[in-house]
Design a protein around this nucleic acid. Structure first.
Lengths: 276, 276
DNA sequence: CGTCGAGTTGATGTCTATCAAAGTGAGTGG
DNA sequence: CCACTCACTTTGATAGACATCAACTCGACG
């Protein structure tokens, strides 16, 4: 497997056990032309029609919306293994922009290739749908964050999200990880001012909870960070309970294959605990 | 067509021109057992496994998340024609609750019926996927709202959203419409306190822009309300430009038709995930 | 007629924004 | 090798938006 595809593979492994033809199908998404994109570039622009899709192989990007007066809200972060424009054709034009946060390496694909991929490997299609669903989850969690949490809680939660997402892809080094994210960007994610993000970060650092700068972050005291964030077990579960998820996939496989088998009893398996 | 299904039909008409078998397929979603649910009931509970799906025929509901200490964030509103649990099987347990805001009439369906429906009418499946994608859009818009707008802007935007969504379904009476929404609920939607929502609403009323109470709202000065909200044309477009959307559907129809089989590209994959 | 949900209003407090400016550190060019 | 810039972080002072606390009104309801 190509090195850059590993993160994507790791991520999707949460949902399905890969078989040969899944791998082949997946490869067809990342076999397209690769591209190096310098930091600070918009690879998607709000209001413009959709172009090619991108699989992020290395680097980070962020999707965002801007208001006429320049205020900006970041919606989500895209990291290695994430896919931009997966279901692009669903809307006429892009509804948000996507900007690179550091130098990015991507594989590009044509929108219709998604159809090809899912027809070659329906199971992979399902996994991709799941991945999209999780993005929806994360968006919802961001809304809670911004709507109902204090600055410190928001920051704590965001860093835990980074950590969790990178971990799943095998991109962390214990409690240390790389984040190409300035305080300005954090501010635009959390609906705060840069100054206040700075003070909050400083406070977390002084309290021996979290160290961070533009390049990297170190979780010094995980327990207190989680306590601060009120990091919900459910959220963790979605990230760390592949077995639960795998069972769901099997159930759905049946649905797709048998088109009408009963699903009774599905979902009763909320048993397994997140293994942090 | 059953009366309660009209809103759903209207909504989906934005995406496809209905044909006979589409109608039949759609009917199978609402032919299931109907139910009357009193106001203030949770029809879905965060953390519990998924049960049946619901098509809302009459009344409103809201999906929300709560924090351990009781703070609450409403994620989205569900009105007649909206579907709860459309793609439920994608996650093991519900990640948000759904509560009724007034007495609700719903049709219920089993999760696997979605598969049946989309296989009987792939075009309808696509339309359902589209609808889900739009919900994703609305969620993103809520995030911008809460993260980067002032109280007055948030309120203005929310009421314009209500108006737009109801209009599409033929549920408005000019600039007057029914909303079973208390100020407490608005507060939990916008990340504000009840008191401040009240003052903001009062201010809008005093300025002759918007009149509202628990039952209904009247847009008195649409121009100023839109100006206040910075209501983007894009957002409107997504709600009012069926022709654009229709063209996209045709394009996708071709993709689906060309690439092969009915179920592989089934609508489910085209979504960025169901509401809640 | 008392209770209850909802809306309203005033007084007070605080979290966070805004304004302003200085400090760091990597990278550039002379 | 040393200015010098640029992007980013940090810190102080001040202001404002919104939260919180508390109390009152009003209509619906049993």
């Amino acid at each position: 497997m190509k090195p850059g595809a590993e993160a994507l593979h790791n991520k999707l492994s949460l949902f399905i056990d890969f078989e040969d033809n899944d791998n082949e199908a997946l490869d067809s998404l990342i076999d397209g032309p690769h591209q190096q994109i310098p930091r600070g570039t918009d690879i998607v622009t709000e209001g413009e029609p959709h172009r090619r899709g991108h699989v992020i192989l290395d680097g980070w990007a962020a999707s965002y919306k801007t208001l006429p007066d320049g205020r900006r809200q970041i919606l989500s972060f895209l990291m290695p293994g994430d896919i931009v424009g997966l279901f692009a054709p669903v809307s006429a034009v892009c509804t948000a922009s996507v900007a690179t946060l550091n130098d990015l390496e991507v594989a590009t694909f044509m929108p219709e290739e998604v159809v090809t991929v899912t027809s070659r490997s329906p199971r992979l299609g399902v996994a991709l749908g799941w991945a999209a669903a999780r993005e929806h989850e994360i968006l919802a969690e961001h809304l809670v964050n911004v709507g109902r949490r204090s600055a410190a809680e928001r920051v704590a939660h965001l860093f835990l999200e980074f950590w969790a997402r990178l971990r799943v892809r095998g991109l962390t080094n214990g409690k240390r990880f790389t984040i190409p994210v300035t305080q300005t960007i954090i501010a635009d994610t959390l609906g705060l001012s840069v100054v206040h993000v700075n003070r909050t970060l400083r406070q977390l650092s002084n309290q021996g909870i979290l160290e961070s700068n533009r390049d990297k972050a170190v979780i010094v005291d995980l327990g207190r960070l989680q306590a601060l964030a009120g990091f919900s077990e459910d959220f963790l579960l979605n990230h760390y309970a592949p077995h639960t998820l795998r069972r769901r996939v099997e159930a759905l496989d049946q649905m797709l294959g048998g088109a009408g088998r009963s699903l009774d009893g599905d979902g009763r398996d909320k048993t397994s605990q997140p293994q942090a």
